[in-house]
């Protein structure tokens, strides 16, 4: 169990890194947004991992006495997922408008076109 636990946390760190890298280094706006969603998804994993309890079940009460995992991180992440998709949707809206005005969604092109 411990191995798996460590694995969850390490994967969180790796995904965070991959997503963050894409946001910073990729000049394509859509790619940046995808990177951002990976970046956020990594954080979701962190929260959900910490809410898990050994031999627990989902916090939905059943007849038998059970050990339930912590519902609070799950609630927080439900909210965070929705916040994430909202940001993505708005970001995509902006990207579409940028494409209409500039004819490109590459950061490099846009910087060049603004310099003129």
């Amino acid at each position: 169990m411990n191995v798996l636990g460590l694995f969850y946390y390490w994967v969180f760190a790796v995904l965070l890194m991959v997503g963050f890298y894409a946001v910073i280094a990729k000049p394509n706006y859509v790619k940046k947004l995808i990177g951002l969603s990976i970046f956020q998804a990594a954080v979701f994993l962190l929260y959900i991992t910490m809410g898990k309890i050994e031999d627990g079940t989902a916090p939905i009460f059943q007849a038998a006495e059970n050990v339930y995992s912590n519902p609070l991180p799950q609630v927080l992440i439900l909210t965070a997922i929705v916040v994430g998709i909202s940001t993505t949707a708005l970001g995509l809206g902006i990207v579409v408008r940028i494409r209409e005005e500039y004819g490109s969604i590459e950061e490099t092109d846009i910087k060049e076109r603004d310099r003129k």
């Binding site: 956020q40 940001t87 970001g91 902006i94």
Partner: peptide, 18 residues
């Protein structure tokens, strides 16, 4: 130019919030 500006703000703001 407001559009790329706001996109940059969105990216950096989201990173900050995350």
């Amino acid at each position: 130019r407001a559009l790329p500006a706001v996109f940059k703000y969105l990216i950096m703001g989201t990173i900050g919030a995350t």
